[in-house]
Nucleic acid binder design. Structure first.
Lengths: 197, 197
DNA sequence: TCGCTGACAGATTTCAATATCTGTCAGACA
DNA sequence: TGTCTGACAGATATTGAAATCTGTCAGCGA
């Protein structure tokens, strides 16, 4: 009876996200989250062992959500070069959109990413796997020529940090940014292509 | 007479560097610098209009010093691919050495770089010019094939931020770092090479 | 005259007292 | 029995008063 009032991890995460959006990472407290749910803060600790774990769980939700369109592109079919370019441009614009739309939220995300926490590492690994998927598709299609797909995928990821790592977010709005992205993508695509003169 | 006691910008910079090394950026004050020189702090302001300008001047000295070996490599002769690789590896190891040898000093450098100040921008532009020099040598040698040398040089620089931007310094000590650098350099070299199957 | 000093106003930082928060747990309540 | 509460200890954050710093400038001494 009255299912709606049962305290679930899901409801807590929802409320936490609200509180973070409202107060920002530095001001949001577990007490605030509890207040938003109209329970004592002790109850929150029944579902999450610490504030850090709660924050990580919220981060995981965001990252998974952000990752979804990228998974689709990687899973899709079609010529690998176009797909790789699309994947990279999508990855960049997702981040860019975040920073523009919701700077308060982005500051939170930045704080997370700079902590180099486990959750973020796992997310990065997932991204590299997606790139690797596209690269190996390209090899199968005979358009890419790659010694070590995994290492190259990592290299592509590393080469593009500037446009997906939040530490560089302030550069993303600069007017010369798009053309620099174009040049970078062109260089990387040339780096994996097969050679036919 | 008594030339040794004349207060010159050079002597002030020397003393400032000492003070920074001793106290770190956050603790170093203009009063400290003046005390080290045994003059009043008002005298320092006779030579530098503000603390910021003094700090920038010190930064410029460091950066110019760090840049010197890279200028030599760029100015040298020999096969461009080897030279580019050497240039990149040298750039990385200079930074890496800095962070290991003198972490207090590096924190100062990081604070500077994160401010994205004019001095740092100028330094970056200089770096890109050096890369461009090597790339155009490569084109002349017939080993590189590049549409837009300047843009590609920028792309190479951007692609390697992870290993020269201080925001990523904590990654540099990780054990998987060298192999990731290898993969990245290989990818970039392939991206500029001429195609002969 | 010319470079330097040292006192000053306003901005910034420090520090310690106070308030708030995190995480635990014995017990209430259903 | 199992979920939730609320008081608590220790850790962390806030606050405001006092100390220090930045940048200026009138005047000193060479």
């Amino acid at each position: 009876m009255n299912e709606a009032v049962v305290l679930t991890p899901e409801r807590i995460l929802e409320a936490t996200e609200d509180v973070l959006r409202r107060f920002g990472l530095s001001k949001a407290t577990v007490v605030d989250v509890a207040r938003a749910l109209d329970v004592s803060h002790g109850s929150v600790y029944r579902h999450f062992p610490s504030k850090a774990s709660l924050r990580d769980a919220v981060a995981k939700r965001w990252l998974d959500r952000a990752n979804e369109p990228l998974c689709k592109i990687a899973a899709g079919s079609g010529p690998a070069p176009e797909r790789l370019e699309k994947w990279l441009r999508t990855a960049f614009s997702i981040k860019q959109k975040k920073v523009c739309d919701d700077p308060e939220m982005f500051a939170t995300y930045l704080a997370l990413a700079q902590d180099a926490r486990e959750v973020v590492e796992a997310y990065k690994d997932k991204q590299v796997d997606l790139i690797a998927k596209i690269l190996s598709d390209g090899v199968a299609q005979g358009v890419f020529e790659i010694d070590n797909v995994k290492a190259t995928a990592r290299a592509v990821f590393d080469a593009t940090v500037r446009y997906h790592h939040p530490a560089h977010a302030e550069e993303w709005a600069k007017p010369e940014c798009p053309s620099r992205i174009d040049a970078l993508i062109a260089l990387l695509l040339r780096g994996v292509r097969v050679c036919k003169p």
